[in-house]
Design a binder for these strands. Structure first.
Lengths: 168, 168
DNA sequence: TTGAATTTTCAAAATATATTGAAAATAATA
DNA sequence: TATTATTTTCAATATATTTTGAAAATTCAA
């Protein structure tokens, strides 16, 4: 397979993959393109490679910057802005985990804490089932929260290393 | 907070939560409703509780059954079908992990294997960056694959136990 | 069988999400 | 400062996804 074709396949399936994870197709595709590009790219480069509009490109680049996955690069003598993606996949994963934990897991735990305190007779099986379900999700969520914290703080490859020892 | 209100809040935020994970709102809401219901429910029960149509209810129940999260229950003497959800949250998580691994991770690894074999001169930095990126994603993906396999096969609470030991 | 209850299907409608593109804002240069 | 290049915004449009509901299929009991 030729590089051009391989690149296209990668970008397109990375995009499809993203949609299963609540990330929009274009954002994932821009990220994929930057991951396989040795040098920083401009908005126009991306528009051309991916056949998308200027506005779409711009919004999704900004979103990638918000997620901490892409950054602006100043190239001396160039008028246009360039962008590059973090290439270390472990850093990328840690960054995504960090953001999703903050955006999703933590608010969910806050809610569960409130809901666990529901009033009502514990002898009512509706109350009991509700409280039990909430408690067990909360317990799991707290575990995940701690585990992810350690992972986020961990050195590069730490997770791989630990997991290997544990699971070999 | 009263049970009815707490239940509604749980169902509605579980639905919103689901959309961040590529699961549709209704499917997540039905799942939430079944999780907090002590006894099996019929389609009509769910339609009423969630204010959704018969078709929608039916399709999403079937999807939940496909995912292995819900099952039909036969209640002697009853004409209608009843449904219930697995209440053990660890089993639920393991089941979801198992399915997503099969549906997403494994096909992605297959693709990466193909793409890694791209032809071209390794001295070309485009080729080099492409191959490096694909390899490192593949490496990470394989680690995740192994780790998840162990997790799926693990006894209940095994994961919590190990993680606690490891991260304490 | 027949008929009523129940479940399933799926085209059409509704809703939600993503994308465009041109105008406005901003930044860089002369 | 005026001019031009570049980036940003956002209403309108396009696309994708979800939901509805009525008809068809199935199941069950008499």
């Amino acid at each position: 397979m030729k590089l051009t074709e391989a690149k296209q396949q990668f970008i397109s399936s990375w995009g499809a993959f993203g949609t299963h994870w609540g990330i929009n197709r274009t954002m994932a595709q821009i990220h994929a393109l930057l991951l396989v590009s040795p040098d920083p790219l401009t908005q126009d480069d991306m528009m051309e490679e991916l056949n998308i509009s200027r506005g779409n490109t711009n919004m999704n680049i900004r979103e990638l910057i918000n997620w901490g996955l892409v950054e602006r690069v100043i190239i001396p003598g160039e008028r246009k802005e360039f962008f590059t993606a973090e290439k270390d996949i472990w850093k990328v994963v840690r960054q995504i985990v960090k953001e999703r934990k903050k955006r999703e897991l933590e608010p969910m735990l806050d809610l569960l804490n409130k809901l666990e305190a529901v009033e009502g007779d514990k002898r009512d099986k509706n109350v009991r089932t509700f409280v039990d379900t909430i408690s067990s999700i909360k317990k799991l969520g707290n575990q995940a929260d701690k585990t992810l914290d350690v992972m986020i703080r961990a050195e590069e490859n730490w997770f791989v290393g630990s997991m290997m020892k544990l699971f070999k």
